[in-house]
């Protein structure tokens, strides 16, 4: 089995690679079109800013490549947001695989909301094969200021002032807002489930 991690100008690729390594899987970091297309599994990670990331992907035509992939794809954090329709982060048009928009957390009037959300939060309403053997209310590690709204593709929900999509799934595209590569055993289980698809 060949697993690739898409290389672009957004960080945390090393962590994903190490998480795969802990599961005994080698992840090849690449932006080569042929390498990505011929992979069995594609991981699309990312920590960073939406507009510069989208621009980088477009310049290399990676956006078209990604949306046309037929094998299982796992978007993580910014990777998930870029697979959505549009992001409020610098008013960025994204790839539109998932039919939801990405918005910025808003502090309610009555109390101060810390942005970004940093830390462990629980995920509920789990209904995807990637959550097999992951218990309802499992805790995952989140670091983000923008969130994907709820929609038809939502397969896990988290609450931070409002309910939003902790995970999305449509056809061969799977995506999580949290960092499974940093979410202890429960996170490793999700990556393993994805690799076993």
């Amino acid at each position: 089995m060949k697993t690739v991690i898409i290389k672009y100008n957004a960080g945390n690729i090393r962590s994903v690679q190490f998480a795969l390594e802990r599961l005994g899987v080698e992840g090849t970091v690449t932006d080569d079109h042929d390498e990505i297309m011929s992979a069995d599994k594609v991981i699309f990670p990312g920590v960073g800013e939406a507009s510069t990331a989208m621009q980088y992907l477009k310049e290399r035509k990676l956006d078209q490549l990604i949306t046309n992939l037929q094998q299982p794809v796992l978007g993580i954090c910014l990777g998930m947001q870029l697979l959505c329709r549009h992001s409020e982060e610098n008013n960025t048009d994204c790839m539109g695989v998932f039919d939801v928009d990405v918005k910025r957390f808003q502090s309610p009037v009555e109390n101060l909301l810390k942005i970004p959300q940093i830390g462990w939060n629980n995920i509920t309403g789990l209904h995807s094969v990637v959550f097999e053997h992951v218990p309802e209310n499992a805790y995952m590690y989140f670091v983000h200021s923008y969130y994907a709204a709820l929609g038809a593709d939502t397969v896990a929900i988290t609450n931070y002032v409002i309910n939003y999509s902790a995970a999305l799934q449509k056809d061969n595209f799977y995506a999580v807002q949290f960092h499974p590569e940093k979410s202890a055993e429960a996170g490793a289980r999700i990556i393993e489930n994805f690799l076993n698809l």
Binding site: R14, F18, R22, Y141, H179, A184, E185, A188
Partner: peptide, 8 residues
């Protein structure tokens, strides 16, 4: 550390 530790 990053290789072996599965939390941030």
């Amino acid at each position: 550390i990053a290789r072996h530790v599965n939390i941030p």
